[in-house]
Amino acid sequence: MMKRKILTAVMAVSMAVSCLTGCGSSGGAKGTVTTDGSTSMEKVIGALGESFMERNQGINFSYNPTGSGSGISAVANGTCDIGLSSRNLKEEEKADGLQETVLAIDGIAVIVNKSNEVADLSLEQIAGIYTGEITNWSELGGSDGEIVVIGRESGSGTRDGFESITGTEDACVLRQELTSTGDVIATVKSNENAIGYASLASVDDAVLTLSVGGVLPSSETVLDGSYAIQRPFVLVTKEGKELSAAAKAFFDYALSEEAKEVIEGAGVVPAN
């Protein structure tokens, strides 16, 4: 019995010691960074937050996925440090003293099966396909075949981005609603009449990426804005209001060289 008690005591002490050393090894800035906004940015912000906290152990990073609109008003009200928006700020929002810094650009590729003869579609044609006005590939210069329209589940950031740019919100007539980028690509790969969309970074050679209005999506065409189906991921701050040391550290880190790899890893193109 006695032996066990001693053992317990030894374990407790060693645990306490390891705790102390754990705390001691951190350092640098301390505090919290709160971000609030776009649900589409969840992946990139999550990845950035994680790698940021790894580098700065004293800082606590939080992200509240509420949507671009509420994120922007949260910065304006001062309830968060940095707002996240997956659209550019409107003029009246800028007039309210908000400042935008483009963190990254999200390009959405439109993909079809490799055997498809159609290689280019205009934004209007894509919208026509997704709203069910165009139902056969022969209407677009391809071979005869009913178009199988593949989309993402409601709530998906890619769907939200795609539908807002093509102007097809709440109007899409889908044949399949899949829950991941991988599923979309696999389905388009296996069905010669399918069309789908996926984040640019995750598309590979298994499917054919369409050019939109004559422009093929790539990091360059997304960055220079010539590729149409894209949107910015914006960090929103308040002009004239000093960021806390922790928030400043995150802001700088997000725009730094070393964060680029993390941003690319999340499937979007770094803006700078």
Partner: peptide
């Protein structure tokens, strides 16, 4: 894909 081929429909899902 098999259902699609067999029943000659646009999509087998």
């Amino acid at each position: 894909p098999a259902v699609r081929e067999l029943f000659q429909i646009a999509d087998g899902a």
